[in-house]
């Protein structure tokens, strides 16, 4: 599996992603500068976390116009697998590759902590190595993760099983208290209607090694390979 990881000015999780994908999991990883336009050499694209363009104007608003984004749009339209993590999720929303938008966190603070999230849908390209309703521990680190969608969009997310992760307590109950940022219906991650584009605020690449004491992120990357093998077969 060849994974392309996009580096925007201000990305800061691109090398973390490469480390996990390449060194920990043994897949091929290529860092791709945002000014490039070719994705012909990769199977999967990751938009990593960070603060692209300093989050000026709105998080992700300027990065979405980087040259590589038009290639990512075409790649996604052809069914290519695209994963946006944290700032990558925000960029995908601004680009319209995923529906909705991010507001500032409910209590305005930048939140950097481990959270519990529930796998709402384990039959996706991104979660097939998890069990349905499995509770995962992953870190979040963001100031704008308060997901918003209008009622019609939210209804469509339900109708097409697009909600993939929700914030929950350690028992897997999706409660208001377990919602760290005020996100609509505790949404932590969604996919597009076609199912090949996922955005998530938690960081799977920061919990994929024993040395960190957390490894719940590993299965997400393994799911990608599994899905890819199915596509090829």
């Amino acid at each position: 599996m060849k994974i392309g990881i996009i580096t925007f000015p201000g990305s800061n999780c691109d090398r973390d992603c490469r480390h996990v994908v390449k060194t920990v999991l043994g897949y091929q990883a290529h860092l791709i500068w945002h000014q490039e336009t070719s994705l012909s050499h990769v199977d999967v694209v990751i938009l990593p976390g960070g603060f692209s363009y300093g989050d000026y104007l709105r998080a992700g608003a300027i990065a979405r116009f980087s040259p590589i984004m038009e290639s990512i749009r075409q790649f996604a339209e052809k069914g290519g697998i695209v994963l946006g993590i944290c700032n990558g999720f925000q960029i995908l929303l601004e680009a319209g590759l995923l529906p909705g938008a991010m507001l500032k966190n409910r209590y305005l603070s930048f939140i950097c902590q481990d959270v519990s999230i529930k796998v709402e849908n384990a039959e996706t390209t991104f979660t097939n190595e998890y069990a349905s309703d499995q509770v995962l521990t992953m870190p979040i680190a963001h100031a704008e993760g308060n997901y918003y969608a209008d009622p019609m969009t939210l209804s469509a997310l339900h109708d097409h099983a697009q909600i993939v992760f929700r914030y929950c307590d350690q028992h897997g109950d999706v409660t208001a208290e377990a919602n760290p940022n005020g996100s609509l219906e505790n949404i932590a991650g969604i996919r597009n209607k076609a199912g090949n584009v996922l955005g998530m605020m938690p960081h799977p690449e920061r919990c994929a090694e024993d040395v960190f004491g957390k490894t719940d992120g590993v299965a997400l990357f393994r799911s990608l390979r599994h899905a890819l093998n199915q596509m090829v077969a």
Binding site: A61, L93, E94, A101, L103, Y148
Partner: peptide, 8 residues
């Protein structure tokens, strides 16, 4: 195009 996000 850029300065506002029509969703919000």
């Amino acid at each position: 195009k850029l300065l506002s996000n029509p969703v919000i």
